[in-house]
Design a protein around this nucleic acid. Sequence first.
DNA 1: ACTATGTCATAGCAATGTTATGGATTACGA
DNA 2: TCGTAATCCATAACATTGCTATGACATAGT
Lengths: 221, 221
Amino acid sequence: MREALIEAAARIVATEGRAGLTLRRLAGEVGTSTMAIYTHFGSMEELRRNVRRQGFARLGANLAAVEETRDPMADLALLGAAYYLSATSDPNLYRAMFFDGPVDEEDVGTGLDTFMYLVEGMSRCVEAGRLPKAGTADPAELALEVWALTHGLVSLQLAHLLAPAQAVEHLQSGARCLFLAWGDDPRRLKRSRQRAMARLAELSIDDRQAPSALLFSSQTP
Amino acid sequence: MREALIEAAARIVATEGRAGLTLRRLAGEVGTSTMAIYTHFGSMEELRRNVRRQGFARLGANLAAVEETRDPMADLALLGAAYYLSATSDPNLYRAMFFDGPVDEEDVGTGLDTFMYLVEGMSRCVEAGRLPKAGTADPAELALEVWALTHGLVSLQLAHLLAPAQAVEHLQSGARCLFLAWGDDPRRLKRSRQRAMARLAELSIDDRQAPSALLFSSQTP
DNA sequence: ACTATGTCATAGCAATGTTATGGATTACGA
DNA sequence: TCGTAATCCATAACATTGCTATGACATAGT
């Protein structure tokens, strides 16, 4: 029952946004009564919290699905692509995950858990010697910077202040600036980017195959 | 009456968040009836739209208050500081501006209007020859990248996924990466940063003087 | 067999956004 | 100065929201 409620709630949020998720609406959708939600969650806010958690779980699964190869920089680019595709293919769910607050320590924990996938990918780049000028900086600090850039671009796109084409363009150019500043070689970086592009089709976003090109349409207002 | 309603609504949103702004609550706050809101705005969503617009107006005023000196790079750093301070000193209003949707073309216009202050500052840096490696890139594209970084860090801080100290640290280091990649000289960049730090006290955020240091506390959950 | 516990259906409550109606005030032209 | 139109807002009602009280039913444990 709990699982059915959470999945139905996530589906409603995904299709109609936060405002569409209503107590009686959800109860009717799964064919039960309003009390069922309260015996399992205690409040509507706790239900929303579980929807957020499911969103982070999906995002984490999509990031965990990118394979680790001998080119960690290409792997990192694919992590970024998986993050961007996960966020933009389900805008309402991403909005719920980050902008629906209030957030408590539990939410922060699940958020930082999925961030660890990016830290791991960045760490492999540092160990491979691709970022010599980064010095002794913690890989988590480097990962945080590309996370902030990605999250910022995604947020601006979801606010309709940025077209998808611009978002992916600046995601690539902005990340390139960071990597060059951290000392990666421009030619090696270009090769890694090409390898990442060639591997785009192996991405799986929410158990569906990712589009072979990073540019696509489909945006709910 | 319209102005009083908008100001009271913005104050309620600032102090208690979006959920605190209620029809009857606002009517009681300004000593009128619920119908007053409907004759002036027509719907609660239109009222919220005007609150967002006021938020962007305040942000724009704070950015416009930054003086233009002979060091455009320092001016740009101050623009970034003004943006960060405006956002974090009124988290609920910033959340309302970007994350409260739905957004229509009018909202997009007001958002891009305030963005133009950053584009202007970036344009002055390009004209001064501080970013030679940026080539023929449109200053708006460069400004967009630092905007995305700033907005991303602010958003992560407002989601409690980032402490304020981390946010300002990565705001500086991330922007430094971008400027270095665009060809600014590390020593000139350092001097501009020092000049910007020395001018922090001249910032005015919402008609109050900014703190002399970029690091401060005060965060509503 | 009897209790205990977890689960959900029914019904109701306060609060929400919205609308209908009408009274009060003001604007303005004859 | 009067009459008419329009603007603004107070009162009251409506449907819908999240939430709670109460009790029926089923399953499990001793």
